[in-house]
Computed example of a mutant assay.
Amino acid sequence: MTNAKFNWGLIAPGRIARNFAEALAVIPDAHLYAVASSNLARAQAFAEEFSGEHALDDYQLLVNDPAVDAVYIANPHRFHYDCIKMCLAAGKPVLCEKPLTVNAAQTQELIALAEQNKVFLMEALWSRFQPAWRQVREWLEQQKIGEIKLLSSTFGVNVPRNNDDRLLNPELAGGVLLDMGVYNVSMSQYVMQQRPVKILAEGVVGETGVDERCSVTMSYGEAASQFTCNFMSNTENSFTIYGSKGFIRIPGMFWVASQTCLQLEGQPAEVFESPFRASGFEYQIEEVMQCVRAGKLQSDIISWQESLTTMQIMDEIRSQVGVRYAFLGE
């Protein structure tokens, strides 16, 4: 497969999937082979726009196609579990949008299935693969800012009020934590490389029953990560890592970072910039392709255990805030 085209199947050609398809165009050996949607016309239009070979209105047909090397899943996270399970049962490697599932129990079950069937599975937390965030990791490993003391981040967008929208719909696992806060949680874990010892969370549960604001402190002993995510106001949306010798700041829209800044005490700032080659999805796509070709079942950058820990943390936050999903039997 190394010297051949890597054939991607894409499930759910919506807005996020466009970023994926744009990124494929800058990876020489990546190919959009098939697109599947519940709406055939939508699949056909997407395939035509991004030079996909096949358009289908049946996910199972895509998954069963022996020419598909891996599947990218981009539908609402309420449906991730079923789609991933379908792919793993068919032996198809999976890259699935964040959050991987709706709760930790679902994630645990899928990890067990991936291990049993010896199939690659990865959560599409694209920020971890971006060059700017890889530079952050390098600075941390070099202990440039000394001991980490505090992480501070926000992810807030003033979302137009529409109770029928997916973001506010409890039947679609709506709520700000799973949609936006997953970045605050996952990137805190990426920085700290350990499970928090204590979590304190509070928030606002709106009229539809989902979280519209979550304010959280995750304690890692002497260090802590404090973040707020919300649907109600536009916030700075930066991520700052404070250490004993200085700090690292990833500026606004930290989850889509092409720049980061290292500021040490008494020294001029060091700015790292790396514009994306395409949409920014290209880096995680390349990781999946390398892993699958190497016969790996999981990525070292975002392992199964890391995705599971993120889900366990978010389960605890939702519990403290008071958000429960009836379709899970909660």
Score class of each variant (00 low, 15 high):
Asn3Met: 14
Ile73Gln: 09
Met232Cys: 02
Leu308Thr: 00
Ala36His: 03
Leu328Pro: 05
Arg277Val: 11
Pro66Leu: 09
Ala114Phe: 01
Asp58His: 06
Ala12Lys: 09
Asn169Gly: 00
Asn184Thr: 13
Phe50Thr: 01
Gly9Val: 11
Arg134Trp: 06
Lys296Trp: 08
Arg293Ile: 12
Ile301Arg: 11
Trp255Glu: 03
Leu56Ser: 03
Glu22Gln: 15
Leu95Gly: 10
Arg318Gln: 15
Asp82Ile: 04
Pro196Asp: 01
Thr309Met: 14
Lys198Gln: 13
Val119Asp: 02
Pro76Gln: 05
Leu121Met: 11
Arg161Met: 06
Ala173Val: 12
Ser238Asp: 13
Leu56Phe: 10
Thr235Tyr: 08
Gln194Val: 05
Gly329Lys: 09
Val292Cys: 01
Ser319Tyr: 14
Gln193Ile: 01
Gln142Arg: 15
Ser215Trp: 07
Val182Gly: 02
Glu270His: 03
Ala25Leu: 10
Pro251Ala: 05
Trp139Ala: 07
Glu53Ser: 08
Asn7Asp: 09
Glu265Lys: 15
Ala124Gln: 04
Leu10Met: 05
Arg318Met: 15
Glu109Gly: 00
Glu49Pro: 01
Val68Met: 11
Val256Cys: 04
Gln44His: 12
Leu88Pro: 09
Gly295Asn: 02
Gly280Lys: 00
Asp69Pro: 07
Ser299Met: 08
Leu62Ser: 05
Leu121Cys: 09
Val216His: 08
Tyr242Trp: 13
Lys198Thr: 06
Val321Ser: 00
Ala223Arg: 10
Ile111Arg: 01
Gln312Ser: 14
Ala294Pro: 01
Ser38Met: 12
Ala114Leu: 01
Leu40Ile: 15
Ser307Val: 11
Ala257Leu: 08
Pro13Asn: 01
Asp82Ala: 13
Gly14Cys: 00
Ile199Phe: 04
Glu330Ala: 11
Gly206Cys: 01
Gly206Ala: 03
Ala294Thr: 08
Ile27Gly: 03
Gln44Phe: 05
Pro66Gly: 13
Asn162Lys: 06
Ala30Met: 04
Asn158Ser: 15
Ser225Phe: 14
Met180Ala: 00
Thr235Val: 04
Gly329Met: 05
Gln193Lys: 15
Pro66Ile: 07
Cys87His: 07
Glu138Cys: 08
Leu200Asp: 12
Cys229Asn: 15
Val136Trp: 05
Ile199Pro: 08
Gly266Leu: 12
Asn117Gly: 10
Arg134Val: 14
Pro76Tyr: 07
Glu97Met: 09
Gln194Lys: 15
Leu88Thr: 10
Ser299Trp: 05
Gln130Trp: 05
Val288Thr: 12
Phe247Val: 06
Val292Ile: 11
Pro66Phe: 14
Gly203Ser: 10
Phe120Ile: 03
Tyr325Asp: 05
Pro28Lys: 12
Cys291Val: 06
Lys98Arg: 08
